[in-house]
Write a protein that binds this DNA or RNA. Structure first.
Lengths: 121, 121
DNA sequence: ATACTCCCTGGAGCCCCCTCCAAGTCAAGT
DNA sequence: ACTTGACTTGGAGGGGGCTCCAGGGAGTAT
């Protein structure tokens, strides 16, 4: 697959895909003779994973480390697991913040609804 | 209350508090004769609200608009409600992304746990 | 009175994460 | 052979959200 096709498939721009590869959150993508990127399934898998993690707010830095550990082979499995657990912890923390905020928004909106109701009655 | 006390109470730096006021997500804070900020309860309420919203990822721009509508008086109530509802929508969307990401993290971590288990047995 | 500490403002700087661009290469179409 | 167009690289630029000065004012302690 070309970079364009992958970009359409996952909703990331070609620039972003090149950026992700450059910083190393996506391992080097296979190339054609000409040097043009030719994404295979593994590469697409990385793209999808990183899109997912980024959309949840996981830092590039953490993803670089994960990817780099992965490329160092099996003996880094434990370290990767630690990293993932730490990210999970942070993710849950952020979700808790959001839950609080959502509660608050809901209460505020409700108040506005009561006001509007009164104004109409 | 001084800016320092407020900053300690809510865990935001004085710089951030001044920044929030400057961009207008917090309405002008009362001042002493000398020009020094003297946060009253209303001002603290705004700080707390904005801290909550920002920690959930609500954009400064949206908060500026909310605060500005608020300062324009009662006739903007409907517009404020719309704005809050839009923010709630976005918040729920982000939470859904995070839920997906969390599922994925959990599955990945589980896999690592099975690996570790095998290695130990 | 002098030092200390906290505050003020305006503006520059910084970090993160892309996003855009210039200059060049390759493959296909006419 | 030449144009077209999608790809390449390295590097600069940009937006969001703070964060950090420099330069100056006020209130308190010695």
């Amino acid at each position: 697959m070309t970079i364009k096709e992958v970009s359409e498939k996952y909703g990331l721009t070609p620039d972003t895909l090149r950026y992700y590869e450059r910083v190393g959150i996506i391992p080097p993508v296979p190339r054609k003779k000409s040097g043009v990127r030719d994404y295979d399934e593994a590469a697409c898998g990385w793209v999808e994973l990183m899109k997912c993690m980024r959309s949840a707010g996981v830092r590039i830095e953490a993803l670089i480390e994960y990817s780099s550990l992965f490329q160092q082979g099996d003996e880094t499995a434990e370290a990767r697991k630690e990293l993932l657990m730490e990210q999970r912890r942070q993710l849950m923390e952020r979700m808790e913040d959001m839950r609080r905020s959502l509660d608050r928004l809901n209460r505020k909106i409700e108040r506005y609804e009561r006001l509007t109701g009164k104004a109409e009655s």
